[in-house]
Amino acid sequence: MIQKPSNAFVGASWVALLAGMVAYNIGLWNATMQLNEKGYYFTILLYGLFAAVSLQKTVRDQLEGIPVTNIYYGLCWFATLSAVLLLSVGLWNAGLTLSEKGFYAMSFMLSLFAAIAVQKNTRDSRLVGNEPTTASEPPFNNLS
């Protein structure tokens, strides 16, 4: 049985997502690294967020009996793990202090976790009926 997420959990999820993303990007903005390095880390954040949300959706789809192809399921896992690996390799080889490396790693992981929680809350709210579907949209297709 799916329960509607509490307003406190929805709010905390959004705050965590925004805090992680904003902190990560403020860190990039203030960093003394070259612009191409900043672009690399920013792209990894976007890639990781998309991959984590997509993975959460495919796992949830499978649990609910919604067909998901094995290739897409595998690609979601690959994308999520590769985003974490690419960040790890980038930080390992970066000329940053350990505290800076830890800051980027923690804000990245907070953002990924929060993105999954926000997506889960959105889906649960729609399934419970918090957000009405349109007449042309089937109730269990294309859930965010």
Rank of each mutant, 00 (worst) to 15 (best):
T69Y: 03
V59K: 12
Y73T: 05
L49I: 14
S54C: 05
S82C: 07
L91V: 10
V59H: 09
I26D: 02
T97C: 03
G27A: 07
L86V: 07
Y73C: 02
L86Q: 06
L96A: 01
N30L: 14
A83T: 03
R60N: 13
S54A: 13
Y47H: 15
T32R: 12
V59S: 07
N93T: 07
G102C: 00
Q62S: 13
L75N: 04
K38P: 08
G27Q: 04
V68G: 06
T58P: 03
R60T: 15
I71H: 04
W92F: 15
Y73E: 08
G65K: 11
W29P: 02
L35A: 10
F103M: 08
F103D: 02
L81V: 00
N25M: 11
G90K: 05
L35G: 01
L55I: 03
Q56G: 07
T69I: 05
R60A: 13
E37P: 03
A79S: 12
F50H: 13
T97F: 01
Y41C: 00
R60Q: 11
V59L: 15
I26R: 12
V53R: 14
A79Q: 06
G102N: 01
N93A: 07
N36F: 13
A52C: 07
G95V: 04
W92C: 04
T80M: 08
V53N: 12
L35H: 06
L45S: 04
V89A: 08
Q62V: 15
N70K: 13
L98M: 13
G95K: 09
V89N: 03
Y40W: 15
Y104H: 12
E100W: 02
Y104W: 15
L98I: 09
T69G: 07
W29A: 15
Y40K: 15
Y73L: 13
A105D: 09
G74S: 04
E100K: 08
K101E: 00
Q62L: 15
F42T: 10
V84K: 09
G27D: 02
L75C: 04
V53L: 07
R60E: 10
Y73F: 15
A105T: 14
G102R: 02
V84W: 03
S82Y: 13
A105C: 10
V59M: 14
M33Y: 02
I44C: 03
S54E: 08
K101H: 02
W92T: 08
L63A: 14
E64G: 05
L45E: 06
W77S: 04
A79P: 06
L75D: 02
Y72S: 10
L85W: 14
G65Y: 11
